[in-house]
Design a protein around this nucleic acid. Sequence first.
DNA 1: TATGAATGAGGATTCATTCAT
DNA 2: TATGAATGAATCCTCATTCAT
Lengths: 194, 194, 194, 194
Amino acid sequence: MARARSSKKREDIFQAGLKLFSQHGYSKTTIKDVAEEAGVSFGTVFTYFETKDQLFHACVTEPLVEFREHIMEIRNRLETLTLQQLKQIIDQHVDMFFEKEREIRVIQYVIGQPERFQEMEELDSFANEFTQFIQDIVVIGMKKGFLPNSNPEEVGHGYLAFLMGARLTYTDHKNVQLTNGFKNQALRLFGIGV
Amino acid sequence: MARARSSKKREDIFQAGLKLFSQHGYSKTTIKDVAEEAGVSFGTVFTYFETKDQLFHACVTEPLVEFREHIMEIRNRLETLTLQQLKQIIDQHVDMFFEKEREIRVIQYVIGQPERFQEMEELDSFANEFTQFIQDIVVIGMKKGFLPNSNPEEVGHGYLAFLMGARLTYTDHKNVQLTNGFKNQALRLFGIGV
Amino acid sequence: MARARSSKKREDIFQAGLKLFSQHGYSKTTIKDVAEEAGVSFGTVFTYFETKDQLFHACVTEPLVEFREHIMEIRNRLETLTLQQLKQIIDQHVDMFFEKEREIRVIQYVIGQPERFQEMEELDSFANEFTQFIQDIVVIGMKKGFLPNSNPEEVGHGYLAFLMGARLTYTDHKNVQLTNGFKNQALRLFGIGV
Amino acid sequence: MARARSSKKREDIFQAGLKLFSQHGYSKTTIKDVAEEAGVSFGTVFTYFETKDQLFHACVTEPLVEFREHIMEIRNRLETLTLQQLKQIIDQHVDMFFEKEREIRVIQYVIGQPERFQEMEELDSFANEFTQFIQDIVVIGMKKGFLPNSNPEEVGHGYLAFLMGARLTYTDHKNVQLTNGFKNQALRLFGIGV
DNA sequence: TATGAATGAGGATTCATTCAT
DNA sequence: TATGAATGAATCCTCATTCAT
């Protein structure tokens, strides 16, 4: 049977890599560590990922697929957007940024060292897509009247920055009060008082 | 015998370390690289910093001193704060976060890997100091009436997250339009419409 | 149960090994390479040759059987040897050394590293057999008068050295002029002017 | 003091590499082996040779310099060449090919695997130089009358092949009778009966 | 103080061999 | 018989640290 992209072992190794890269960065994470964490032997890591680099690249970029789906699923239904829905979206965004801790940490690790990693391009285009999505929301919101007059671009960039910063700066994602606070502050970026 | 903390060479090495650590992280930066960047010989690095670890630690924590001064200089005059002054402070904060690129990058590198670095404590207490400072501002602002009703803690945490995220996510600090946008968005976190 | 020595797959693997060992040496040649070159799967190589070592050993020694036949077939008819026949034999030898490129290359690879390989003994005895054969020819030739006075041993060793050196040093076995030149020079080793 | 090309340690490592590469080939020789043989630590090898490849390259090509001098020193005095001198030259060549065992072995290792090593070009041009030198000798010898009518090119190539083959095939360079035999056979390649 | 050669522990990667299917 | 995933020993190379000059 052909070595499946979705083999159980591949997934174990991937998750081990994601965990360790997000905790200790690229260089400090060793293949030996990954193998142990994944419960496979040293050489087996290389059966599924040709190099440490490729494993890292996978850990950075593969989660983007799911992000796209979850974050921008309502893109098609933008025209019917309501304030209520926007609040829900923001809730989802904040929750996701806190829940997908490892996935976002490795991304932040990469964008924090733009001179070093080539993954930057893929991440840049993802960021552009995301901010564009927010801008579209702002435009709709202003047209529909549930958002105050705003500069959509500023809101887009500010909102992304805010989500990233929240995830980077605060680790305790079990703290409900904290995440609720961030949700309130996120609303303010759209000009919505709480 | 105590080495001069303020030697020209020590400063060169420090700046070289700051540059390289901020660009390539801890492990990828070698002492040889630092020496070359600083224009000193290999061994000389060890004359001023006993280990690579200590150089890194210095690069992360020493800038905090200056940050304290610059960011919180008006702490003593909080009682007489005006909206005008708050706007100036926010301006300064955004500008500083973009100008002190290297200093903040290494800090973000450390807080992005909390399981790995012991510098965390010093950074945590700095962050607490900063958010407390913001909270004080919010309380004053509400009391004086130039800020709307807010949860001071939420604003403090949100504002710090926002600054960090802006610095992390956006590299182009020459872009005036971008930084102005961030200043506007920062005001919104305080409940101030633009 | 005994595996067929003459299976088609065994021959494919053998030829692949011969090709790669002769081109890249023992260590640089991997079983994976051999399998690909032979058009069989990785594990199949081990079905026909227990270890890499055994495959190599086979590539070095099995061709010797054929060599014996081709090179020394007229051994039994030495008593009736003529100059004309000697020239034919030399022609055959030179041609064979250039045609059996791979087989001789692996042999040269082994004798070039006598401290490393155990195949040396088999090769030594083959070389002794060969030089003895040449010595016999010289003795006959002198007795019959078509060869000048010579030291048979010197001619034997010199002739073998010459054939080996020609094969080692010159790759272009399509060059007729070159091989003709070697044939002329080979004759001179027997004391025959051209 | 700048790391000299002629440091004692560099020479020790070089000689160790030459010995081991000539005995066991490139891949079977490990840097650890070289270090032990040279009496230095593992890392020190890399202080003098950036990579294993470069050490090997040095072992193959650096001896060529001395070869050029020793082998072709009389090139300038060719016009006055005598038979007596030619015999001396051949003596020197044979002696050198047997004495410089290691240097020539690594060269033979390389030319035996032309698809694998890039050193081939340097070696090719050295070989061309050498055969051209022999051809010049033959032309002079024929003109002066102490050599019979010959094809200079054939003699050049045949003579080089012969020397290489002698070195490759026979290990016992202490055997005077053997080397004398080779000297006689070498003369025959020039058309000189013994 | 300044220098850089020497050291060897540590890490990525390769690959022969095994073995379950 | 044929296959190829799993294993881990072995190897090249890097680099922080030491230390003699």
